[in-house]
Design a protein around this nucleic acid. Structure first.
Lengths: 252, 252
DNA sequence: GGCTAACCTTCCACTGAGTGGAAGGGGTGT
DNA sequence: ACACCCCTTCCACTCAGTGGAAGGTTAGCC
């Protein structure tokens, strides 16, 4: 009379990853029921899986009983080649750049059709922006994203260009116009955005090249729309990007 | 005639975490066979699980076919409360401290009976040390570890004191002597080590207190054994630790 | 070329790990 | 006292997971 039919096709691995994926920037602490709902799993199933994850340190419980991402996952993540070498090499340059511009500084890589922000520096006086370390945004409305898109394989460009959606009134949604911009990004060596992601904010970004060759990341800053010393900013960015590119030690 | 008996008691979750746990500081890229061996799983089982993890972005494959930790895990790890607030709040103070001392700077928390290094700054001129961001070391032979141990629950202290093993000729292995040192750490407000972890390296560390209350982390520096301006170093550390403690915004 | 060795991948019959509805606490608000 | 929500335990059913065997691929060596 019991006989439980689990949704077919679902594997334990996918269930576990669905549970982990329930956490994001705005949901860092989740109750069991929220986890179950967000992962689309029955509560008892979520309970058992989450309990086991917690027993292994992959998740942790707050004093109030909510679940949070555990330290094991954090120290695992640190081993990801996303950042091996790159983040450490870039750190001093990012600080110099912040000191020189007092603008929000971003270091990002491309992850599929999104920008993945690896590091961010911003002070009290910087423009508020949506990006945070570890978060992902579309490529086309951000400065670092345009740089990464301009140097991405054709296949990726086609995919991105085919699904441009408006975010602010200034977001570029015409494929032809974006494609022209990307060509300019390649020839000029830098990209700019004007309130395409956030009203009141402009950005300037440059590629980071390993050994003056392949583009491995992008370095960008976000400034208030009224700021008008772009040439100086581009110069500062290029110096920093060049420094980072020369400091990257290890491959992959 | 087939009939496969999986090792009883092993769950998929534990198998998956064993696979992920196969990666560490010195094994960032692993082949399938190495993964299977390190996780103590049959190759076909490892193959299937690892393949599924890779399909979800939890692992990635290098062009040469080896597996590495994927970006999904990295961005998940960034959400861990290990660092939420703390790392960002501490960053500027760590840089100031590095500038003031030119020593390797560490920010660490206690994870069970180990130190977990959250951040590290070191320059070319710093003493070489074993710690890296995300790595764990025993509590008793490190400066930050002593601070964290001194403010840990009695239960943890007992456990650590009962298993002191020699690492260098200077490592403290007598429980009574270490216990006396911990008392001094609490009364003096700082801890020191003298070549207990690495020959040629000494360290000084202080607690980071949230709202001048509970100890949430430790801040330490590693200097060559011959350096003798300890009072100045302690003062610089305490200023920085105080600053960090006041900057921590969000709880837990 | 042929042989050996090591690694990766696919196949598939067996079975116990995983499943989830049902039911039992515990807390809080009305 | 009742209603509501969330967490936890129980357990009969069954399908997802398992891993030995076999085939494929690549590399090195005589």
């Amino acid at each position: 009379m019991a006989g439980n039919t689990s949704r077919p096709g679902a594997t334990v691995v996918s269930r576990v990853l669905a549970l982990l994926g329930a956490f994001d920037e705005t949901h860092r602490r989740l109750t069991l029921t929220e986890l179950a709902r967000r992962a689309d799993l029955p509560v008892p199933t979520a309970h058992r899986l989450v309990g086991e994850l917690a027993a292994h340190g992959a998740l942790a419980r707050t004093p109030s009983g909510e679940y949070v991402v555990g330290r094991q996952i954090w120290s695992l993540g640190v081993l990801a080649p996303v950042q091996t070498g790159l983040l450490e090499a870039a750190s001093p340059f990012l600080h110099d750049l912040y000191a020189a511009t007092l603008a929000t500084v971003h270091l990002a890589v491309r992850d599929g059709t999104q920008v993945l922000y690896l590091d961010r520096l911003s002070g009290r006086r910087s423009v508020p922006v949506v990006s945070t370390v570890g978060s992902r945004l579309p490529l086309y409305p951000t400065g670092v994203g345009k740089v990464l898109l301009a140097h991405a394989p054709e296949r990726v460009q086609v995919e991105v260009l085919s699904s441009l959606t408006r975010i602010t009134p200034h977001t570029i949604t015409q494929p032809a116009r974006l494609r022209a911009q990307l060509a300019r990004v390649r020839s000029d060596g830098y990209a700019t955005t004007v309130e395409e992601m956030t009203l009141g904010a402009c950005s300037v970004a440059v590629p980071v090249r390993r050994n003056e060759a392949e583009v491995v990341a992008a370095l960008g800053i976000v400034v208030p729309s009224l700021r008008r010393d772009r040439p100086r900013l581009v110069a500062a960015l290029q110096v920093a990007a060049h420094g980072i590119g020369r400091s990257i030690s290890d491959g992959s």
